[in-house]
């Protein structure tokens, strides 16, 4: 599903528009975090600082719950670290494509790396899109997620209970991932990687510190490699 762009500006706005289409998934998640923080009597300053600093919804909600339960500092940090490990995978995967970008532009972009912006943008790089176009698209998605995310947290933190819990709004975030995953499922190895990742994650669900996610991801990667090795050469 690689897109065609005429110029960097076109690529940038295409990235922004793509994220806008995902906003119904992103906004409720950010708002839930805002509401949770407000219910814990966190100041708006702390809520915003945490949302900007973590800039990772799953880790933040896990931290908030642990903090509300009075968990010790080390447990909160360890949980955050383990939920954040996938960013290390993203960082390693995108590394070769960002070497031409000056560090002063690269570091803010990396700070703003999200599941959405990474997984949407790596497709373009791998399809050998011209680097300046792929970069502009990446920047467009990153800025759009950042603005929408912080807006959503603020919305939740200020409106609070006006957003009822019973809407099951947290479901909408996986929809954004489905919209990215399904189009990239091509080849036995990639499909196998996704299937095994899902199975291993489910098996590991009872594990502490959200270890299931990383185990699932690594299991999926191993499955992809194995399928490629044994079934490999003839397909794609």
């Amino acid at each position: 599903m690689t897109k065609q762009f005429n110029n960097p500006r076109h690529a940038f706005w295409s990235g922004v528009r793509t994220i806008m289409a995902m906003a119904p998934g992103i906004v409720p998640f950010g708002a839930i975090i805002g509401v949770t923080a407000r219910d814990m009597d966190m100041s708006l300053l702390a809520t915003l600082a945490m949302s900007m600093g973590y800039y990772a919804g799953a880790a933040q909600i896990a931290s908030l719950q642990l903090m509300a339960d009075g968990a010790v500092l080390l447990v909160v940090l360890l949980t955050t670290l383990l939920i954040g490990l996938r960013f290390g995978l993203y960082s390693a995967a995108i590394a070769p494509y960002l070497q031409g970008v000056p560090r002063i532009q690269r570091l803010p972009l990396l700070y703003a790396l999200t599941d959405q912006s990474f997984n949407l943008s790596i497709v373009n790089y791998r399809a050998n899109m011209a680097p300046e176009l792929a970069y502009s698209y990446f920047v467009g998605t990153s800025i759009a997620v950042w603005v929408i995310w912080l807006f959503a947290v603020l919305l939740g933190a200020t409106l609070g209970e006006a957003i009822p819990n019973t809407w099951s709004l947290e479901f909408f975030i996986p929809l954004t991932f489905i919209s990215i995953l399904l189009p990239i499922l091509r080849g036995k190895d990639v499909v196998g990687a996704a299937l095994v990742a899902a199975i291993v994650t489910m098996l590991g669900q009872g594990l502490p510190y959200n270890l299931g996610l990383m185990l699932g991801a690594c299991g999926g990667i191993a499955a992809g490699l194995l399928i490629d090795h044994y079934a490999g050469v003839e397909d794609e």
Binding site: R86, L89, Y90, A92, A93, D115, F118, N119, I122, V123, E170, F171, I173, P174, F177, I178, I180, L181, I184, L185, D189, V190, V191, A193, A194, L195, V196, A197, A198, I199, V200, T201, M202, Q205, G212, L213, M214, G216, A217, C218, G219, G220, I221, A222, A223, G224, L225, D228
Partner: peptide, 19 residues
């Protein structure tokens, strides 16, 4: 080589329990 599978594996691992 394994990094090639990062998007599919990680996305799937996030989606599965949520759904």
């Amino acid at each position: 080589k394994g990094l090639y599978y990062v998007p599919a594996a990680v996305l799937s691992a996030i989606i599965a329990p949520a759904v």
